[in-house]
Design a protein around this nucleic acid. Structure first.
Lengths: 249, 249
DNA sequence: ACAAATTTGTTCGTATGTATG
DNA sequence: ACATACATACGAACAAATTTG
């Protein structure tokens, strides 16, 4: 149970021409705007709020509906209500680069390499890299964070034959772009990005600090060099609710 | 219980240099390719297959893994295995038009209008149409089908002030593009498309003939006329698993 | 809301055949 | 001939997800 006694029973102006639910919504909006309720923080339950404001639960619900409609809170049946976090725009386009796009939104991008392995190419990875199935490929998996919150799991496949030394470089250097530059591919372009939705695996949910009942967005794309040769197959698994993918036209 | 006696116990060549699981995979691949197992059809259970081929369940599972890896079947824990249906590519770009993109994939697009209503504009719809909140807007909701299968629910908002007669036209004519042409907007362009994933509402799941435990992809975009004036806010709710969104670069 | 039945997923263990050096 | 590694195949038990009653 959350300690709520710090909030003394709020006094509302009854019969003064302003509906109680509007006063409640206004009070909560101020608390959210002031930062005393941080983004992502859990709000008191409807029962707690109705006790605090000494009103019926329906009145609180009307106020919460208003706040949800204005995008200030997020209400989840069976879980609770939460201060809305601003969703991050994740643009996809021919020159999609993680760090740049994040910094353009005045946020701080970070990355943590999860694993780098050499594995035999699965059928569809091999096809896109124009290799034979089973050929060795380097698989690099990285967790991307923004402002300390996990945002996406990126998985990248490279041909070992084309980039024999890439594993070591990836281990040192965080950025895929920089690693490819050092390997003689200073420029590459993203072809079509395919986007699907699915439920996360337990590991994905843990890494993304996300409920297992909420879906993830999954992208897949091939990066090609200026000669049109495939350089990398990359896949991203995004925490839905914290990210929206923006396809620029 | 499904009647399986029509399939007599298949005879596999043991000890002839071809692994049993490969023979099983080959047999099932032929049955799928021949069309005797149609796309979307449920395959026999692992238990039934292991009886049919007189092998251990692991051996059947190894064969199924192979087929899944090659994209021929889809295996779902607790439900069963199914012959894969090809996912529909749904491109988003500046000139996205439902019917054209579907026909280009040699499929038959259809549409069914679900409702046309005049409602007050919610905050974010109003903002994108550059109206004041609460101003009347026409809301049109349509189910899109391809080859008879529901694919997406499209919702469209238009300013009543700008298009006073649009409701009647939408009721007659299926295509948004044609209706706008007749209203003096022969050309429009799609700006950025935002894409998120979420769980469907019960109504959405029913309309899309989809399990409520599978997510949907939701797109939102604004169409603007050549002068840059917003013409329409449109949102699409896509059955994940039957469709993938393709962002062209 | 709960329980049962069905179906796939995972993890043990055991045994055998085949390719390699 | 032998040792080793690897793929194949079978068996049992249990876990997890889904559907049905």
């Amino acid at each position: 149970m959350v300690e709520t006694s710090m909030n003394m029973t709020a006094t509302l102006a009854r019969g003064q021409g302003v509906a109680l639910w509007r006063q409640i919504a206004g009070t909560m909006e101020r608390e959210i705007a002031s930062g005393s309720l941080a983004p992502g923080a859990r709000l008191p339950t409807e029962a707690e709020l109705s006790a605090r404001f000494a009103v019926n639960r329906h009145t609180v619900r009307r106020a919460m509906e208003e706040l949800e409609g204005r995008g200030l809170v997020r209400i989840e049946q069976g879980r609770g209500s939460f201060v809305a976090e601003d969703v991050l725009d994740y643009p996809v386009g021919p020159r999609t680069r993680f760090s740049e796009t994040i910094r353009r939104q005045n946020r701080e991008p970070q990355g943590r390499m999860l694993r780098i392995e050499e594995v035999p190419a699965e059928a569809h990875i091999a096809e896109q890299l124009r290799l034979r199935r089973g050929r060795p490929v380097i698989l690099a998996e990285r967790l991307s964070l923004v402002d300390g919150r996990p945002i996406a799991i990126g998985t990248h496949w490279f041909s070992t034959a084309r980039f024999p030394s890439i594993a070591a470089l990836l281990a040192e250097e965080a950025s895929i772009t920089q690693v490819l530059t050092r390997l003689g591919v200073p420029d590459f372009r993203r072809q079509a990005t395919r986007i699907i939705a699915r439920m996360p695996t337990p590991e994905e949910a843990t890494l993304l600090e996300q409920s297992r009942t909420r879906p993830v967005l999954v992208t897949e794309a091939v990066n090609v060099d200026p000669q049109g040769q495939p350089v990398e197959v990359s896949s991203g698994c995004y925490a839905s609710g914290r990210v929206q993918i923006v396809a620029e036209s």
